[in-house]
């Protein structure tokens, strides 16, 4: 059940200050890393909403982000639609596709749900790869970024684009928090805890799953549309299942079902990739070791471990009342 705790609010404030502060002090390379973190953060927020709060571990989210990227590219670069409309169109398209995937997969659970979403993701990858209009293996270029000149912002400037992406992270976070605190989001948490009981209470479970999966897909689509604008080029690799796998690793590293943790995980993952990658091409080994350490420690990721530690300290300071069973007040 999603709730803002003081620790989460403090962590969000710290991340915001660090991100904005870094944006104003970083070099071009640093700004590129910051933008990469922001785009990944949006994708993992979307994934955490369904996986962390609904138990729907998706291996389709990389493909959904890819659909958002291709949707933006096709609308803006190929059809000549204005970038803001192309952005909204890409988000809407991805949301609709995600809703359909969620509706179909809603009746499966666990490994079967994972495999079903993987299948959908691979179908999307193959379709994009094999269809000439999408440019095949060569992908599509000529993509423009949004024009925010009315606000005095040139998004071709790396700093402005990084700040814009950070603003989109804040928007995506607010959207996730809004959904998770709504009746729909509370129902999702209930379904995650006991699907059988929620159904017995009168909830049409598949609809809840499909709606939230669709909303999550919209956020993944935003991530993809930003990725397309970032590198101004899209290729089928954006839809690869390994993107979904990396996103899942990031969510687990950060803290599944915390919404704040995946933001931490995104920053940790991208920085690790670039810093360790500068030393050795085997940076994946280091990431793997960190992931194994996190999983074996039974902590819920980096942020989950921090929350557990703070919780233990708080509990240690408070005397615990003894539970007493009496007839009629059992």
């Amino acid at each position: 059940m999603f709730r803002h705790t003081p620790l989460r609010v403090a962590a969000l404030a710290l991340l915001a200050v660090a991100g904005i502060g870094y944006a104003f002090g970083a070099s071009y390379f640093g700004l590129e890393i910051l933008t990469e973190i922001a785009i990944l953060a949006i994708l993992v927020l979307a994934l955490d909403m369904v996986a962390g709060f609904g138990g729907m571990v998706s291996l389709a989210h990389g493909a959904l982000a890819g659909v958002g990227a291709y949707g933006y590219a096709m609308l803006q670069a190929q059809a000549g639609v204005a970038p803001p409309i192309a952005l909204l169109g890409a988000i809407g398209l991805t949301g609709a596709l995600a809703w359909a995937i969620g509706a179909v997969c809603a009746r499966s659970h666990g490994i079967y749900f994972i495999m079903a979403t993987l299948a959908f993701g691979q179908m999307a990858y193959s379709y994009i790869f094999e269809t000439p209009v999408f440019g095949g293996d060569d992908g599509l270029g000529g993509i423009s970024r949004l024009d925010l000149s009315v606000l005095g912002l040139d998004l071709m400037d790396s700093r402005n684009f990084a700040l814009f992406c950070l603003a989109m992270v804040a928007l995506a976070y607010a959207a996730c928090a809004f959904v998770l605190r709504s009746g729909l989001g509370r129902s999702l948490s209930g379904v995650h805890e006991s699907e059988q009981r929620m159904r017995a209470l009168g909830l049409t479970v598949w609809r809840v799953k499909a709606h939230v999966f669709g909303l999550s897909g919209m956020i993944a689509g935003l991530s993809g549309a930003l990725a397309a604008q970032h590198i101004m080029y899209v290729s089928p690799g954006l839809l690869s299942w390994t993107v979904s796998g990396e996103a899942l690793v990031v969510v687990i590293l950060g803290g599944l079902g915390t919404l704040v943790g995946p933001l931490v995980g995104a920053a940790f993952f991208v920085v690790l990739k670039h810093e360790v990658g500068a030393i050795t091409p085997y940076w994946h080994l280091v990431t793997g070791l960190v992931l194994i350490a996190v999983v074996m420690s039974r902590a819920n990721g980096i942020f989950g471990a921090l929350e557990a530690w703070v919780g233990r300290r708080r509990a240690a300071r408070q005397p615990q009342p003894l539970a007493k069973e009496v007839p009629g007040n059992a």
Partner: peptide
């Protein structure tokens, strides 16, 4: 979840507020 949230989820769903976006159900 807490006792209140257990009862709250049941009441929320029964009152038709389990699918809505907006205020905390």
């Amino acid at each position: 979840l807490s006792v209140a949230d257990n009862l709250g989820l049941a009441a929320m769903v029964a009152q038709g507020r389990g699918m809505g976006l907006g205020r905390d159900g």
